[in-house]
């Protein structure tokens, strides 16, 4: 911790419209390793940042398919193969009788897929982050909006990046350390 490395430039904004316009400027300037931090999700920010559609849906879909298939296979194996008991003349296996539990498992696995997929794509839980050590950044969950351009960005330069953020309308720009 002794030799503190710079993590990035943190620019503060007061209004959602300001941070949105600033994000568009940063996007158009061609930065890649940067982020907008807001107290709540802002509609249209994904476009303003140039983000692609989230991939969480795939995790949920795979979860759902797994749930339905495993439900059907489980019921077929347990009731029609491994432990056959004739009950009321009903067939040993019927997709109709097996549907309700399989349907529930579809939803169960799909829901786990959505939550765990979201956490995986976001690389969470994360117990340490340079921004979380920064005092002013605590307001991100209150009522301030921030743009962070990381030093890891190939286009990052201490002077030009700061000028860009100033031109974008931020009145408070600070260097955050690793």
């Amino acid at each position: 911790m002794s030799a503190s490395k710079p993590y990035g430039l943190l620019a503060e904004f007061d209004k959602p419209a300001d941070v949105m316009h600033a994000a568009e400027k940063v996007r158009d300037a061609g930065y890649k390793v940067w982020d907008v931090h807001t107290p709540y999700p802002i509609h249209g920010m994904d476009e303003a940042m140039g983000l692609k559609n989230s991939k969480v849906g795939w995790f949920s879909f795979i979860g759902g398919v797994t749930g339905y298939t495993s439900g059907m296979l489980l019921i077929w194996f347990t009731n029609a193969v491994d432990y056959k008991v004739m009950i009321g003349g009903k067939p040993m296996f019927s997709p109709f009788g097996a549907f309700p539990p399989s349907y529930e498992l579809t939803i169960l696995f799909g829901a786990f897929g959505a939550l765990l997929g979201m956490l995986f794509l976001n690389r969470l839980p994360r117990l340490h982050h340079p921004l979380l050590k920064h005092d002013r950044f605590k307001l991100v969950t209150h009522d301030k909006y921030f743009i962070v351009i990381e030093t890891a960005d190939p286009k990052y330069s201490p002077k030009e990046t700061r000028e860009l953020l100033e031109a974008a309308g931020s009145k408070r720009i600070e260097l955050v350390e690793e």
Partner: peptide, 12 residues
Amino acid sequence: FGWTGSNRHWSN
């Protein structure tokens, strides 16, 4: 979970 209000996170 170390939530920072990142828009990349909000998107997912």
